[in-house]
Write a protein that binds this DNA or RNA. Structure first.
Lengths: 192, 192
DNA sequence: TGACTTATTCAACAAGCGTAGAACGACTGT
DNA sequence: ACAGTCGTTCTACGCTTGTTGAATAAGTCA
């Protein structure tokens, strides 16, 4: 019955193709964004009829929602120094290999309202857990800035593919950004 | 002949509607991106027939090219300290009111290849003039990082509208980012 | 085996898109 | 005034899209 070499059962078959469709959808959404990814293209990539995609996922919108699961990294917490090091750890992870689902959201965040909302929500959650560690009345703003800047770096590397950002060793980028993150999570900054 | 109150001449009339179309196109491209902005919507917003838009601009692609003129800020140069202050000046300008043409490019940079190329080119030009002021063999990487991070902040404020980033005073954001930019344009950074 | 479910495909619809070309009518130079 | 330019609109073509419902064929269970 459960012989792995045998012809797969019906339920297995279904989960199989459903997973294959989902994987191809993730890839295409991450590569081309929501609008430029057609259900037909997903179906073709998965070796399947477009109608089947609809039958399994209901609509393009629902397919996108399933394909772009936030997979949000653990929220930082603790002292300011700890928070900044956790932020840099997350950054390092996102630089080495970003999960395709996250890239799908990032790719579409400027043109697809739903994706934008998810980014806002994620950034808001991030902010709440960061700003508590910052002894400053501008803590919320600081948290928002560090979110935006780090998103910019990830987007620049994976999606826009900025020249020297794509090839660089993740650890180098993290090292170069460490003073930035620290100055933003601490309340001290000198000008002049 | 040139009585400003009189009925406009043919050439004036043309420049008039052409400018009106271009303005509406800029607005819509900045608001919705390339794909979601239809020529029909631009025409309707300008109170004009879609065919006229084609007749004046040739194609949607050409219209986008005209509507999203880079309007790149003056390239920084000089010593490291001067460069970082110029970068922050540009940032302040982009935070107070970004020209709609630039927002059109930024909005589409993740989904429209042409827009992505323009961002890459702009970032490359930026890099060349920044990295010369940085006494470091990682100068190119530093320049790319600062570009990406600043783009992230601008995008977070104007396009994604991150919570506390939208309301904040530009000068506050600039002040908070000053240590960041300085640490990236200088060759010194401590870790530990 | 036979009844039933279900994974999958086929064919087609309605809508929206960019775009082309003919047509109209007012302005313009001679 | 006449011929021609030109701003502008109308209509329509061809294409792609998301989505649907019927049809097909294979697996499943009594």
């Amino acid at each position: 019955m459960n012989d792995p070499a045998a012809r797969p059962t019906r339920a297995e078959q279904r989960r199989n193709t459903e997973a294959r469709i989902l994987a191809e959808a993730r890839g295409l959404f991450a590569e081309s964004g929501y609008d430029r990814t057609t259900i037909r293209a997903v179906a073709t990539a998965a070796g399947v009829d477009p109608g089947l995609v609809m039958h399994y996922f209901g609509s393009k919108e629902l397919l996108f929602a399933r394909a772009s699961q936030p997979g949000s990294p653990p929220l930082p917490g603790g002292t300011a120094a700890e928070v900044s090091e956790q932020l840099l750890d997350n950054l390092r992870g996102s630089l080495t290999e970003e999960p395709v689902g996250s890239l799908a959201i990032l790719r579409s965040m400027l043109t697809h309202p739903e994706a934008a909302h998810e980014i806002q929500a994620a950034s808001r959650a991030h902010k709440d857990s960061i700003s508590q560690a910052i002894p400053d009345d501008e803590a919320d703003l600081r948290a928002a800035i560090v979110s935006a800047a780090l998103i910019g770096v990830i987007v620049g590397r994976h999606l826009i593919k900025l020249d020297h950002l794509t090839d660089a060793e993740p650890e180098r980028i993290v090292d170069l950004l460490r003073p930035c993150v620290r100055s933003l999570t601490r309340a001290d900054h000198a000008d002049g």
